[in-house]
Simulated assay, not measured.
Amino acid sequence: MNAILKTGDLLTTDSQGFIINPCSFEKISPPWTEIIADLKTAYREIFGKKLHSIYLRGSVPRGKAISRVSDLDSLAVISGNLEKSELTKIQLACRKIKHQYPFCKNVDFLCVSYREIIESESILKMLIKTQSLCICGEDITLVFPNYKPGIEMVSHAFELAEDLKILQDELQCLGNNNIFYSKFIKDRCAWIMKRIVRTGLELVMLREQVYTRDLYPSYLLFSKHYPNQQRYMRKALELAINPSDNLAGLLIFLREFGSWLVEEIDIVFADYKC
């Protein structure tokens, strides 16, 4: 079982209050350099001339990666749309890379079209600008606006109600005769709990005027403003790090604490939600 590490940082801001991107090549060190090189090669082989640029997110480009704990999070911007055959190839490539480098907990990828990023108001714009490092191609963040901690940086709260509903429906329909039953529940548990903890930060971000995606400081700041809910957010933090396959217990937690979060989101963001 992984211990809860009291690590993580708030993103710093400049003299005008804009977020300073903490990622840089200088912060990446072995053995992460080798796995990044293989991931870059895989993207190039799969997408060829369609590949516009590649970005790393998360702890690795910030120099905060922890062996056997941290994921390698990547995003590829491509010309045109993602084909089904390309999706299959990148999925297989990421699984192969993860197997080759056991110190990396998971190799995550996301592929989006250049047009979608440039022309839409996608939250990915903010994530790429403030928390990503371009490792290949033309850096599109140079034309993106700067961001301050505020409503434009809310990436989970407005979708949490739908995320909870879809996941609960999915889990309730899950048959326990599936050989991947335990792994599937644990994977989904970790995914939703990370979203819950980060939503906790978003609930207090406007009041604190700070931002982070790191789980532990998100939990601390939420608990500062919601002491009566601290034990529930602590449980979410624990499950994000050590996910459980206790389906019944997970559904109860999501129904009870999840419902409270959704109600609080409606209150805090009443002036912003459509």
Rank of each mutant, 00 (worst) to 15 (best):
residue 2 N to K: 15
residue 10 L to I: 14
residue 14 D to E: 09
residue 19 I to W: 01
residue 23 C to H: 03
residue 23 C to D: 08
residue 28 I to E: 04
residue 36 I to S: 01
residue 37 A to E: 14
residue 43 Y to W: 10
residue 73 D to I: 11
residue 74 S to D: 00
residue 74 S to M: 03
residue 82 L to C: 04
residue 84 K to D: 08
residue 86 E to L: 02
residue 89 K to M: 14
residue 89 K to P: 07
residue 94 C to Q: 07
residue 98 K to S: 05
residue 101 Y to I: 00
residue 101 Y to T: 05
residue 102 P to E: 01
residue 111 C to P: 01
residue 121 E to R: 11
residue 122 S to Y: 01
residue 127 L to N: 04
residue 134 C to E: 01
residue 135 I to T: 06
residue 137 G to Y: 05
residue 140 I to S: 08
residue 143 V to W: 13
residue 143 V to A: 13
residue 147 Y to T: 05
residue 147 Y to H: 02
residue 148 K to R: 11
residue 149 P to H: 07
residue 151 I to T: 12
residue 154 V to I: 15
residue 158 F to A: 02
residue 162 E to A: 14
residue 167 L to F: 08
residue 168 Q to I: 13
residue 169 D to F: 02
residue 179 I to R: 10
residue 183 K to G: 03
residue 192 I to M: 10
residue 195 R to Y: 11
residue 198 R to E: 01
residue 207 R to V: 02
residue 215 L to W: 04
residue 220 L to Y: 02
residue 220 L to P: 00
residue 223 S to N: 07
residue 231 R to Y: 12
residue 233 M to I: 14
residue 234 R to A: 14
residue 236 A to C: 15
residue 237 L to N: 06
residue 240 A to H: 11
residue 240 A to V: 03
residue 245 D to I: 08
residue 249 G to A: 02
residue 260 W to L: 02
residue 262 V to M: 09
residue 263 E to D: 13
residue 266 D to T: 10
residue 269 F to R: 00
residue 272 Y to D: 11
residue 272 Y to Q: 03
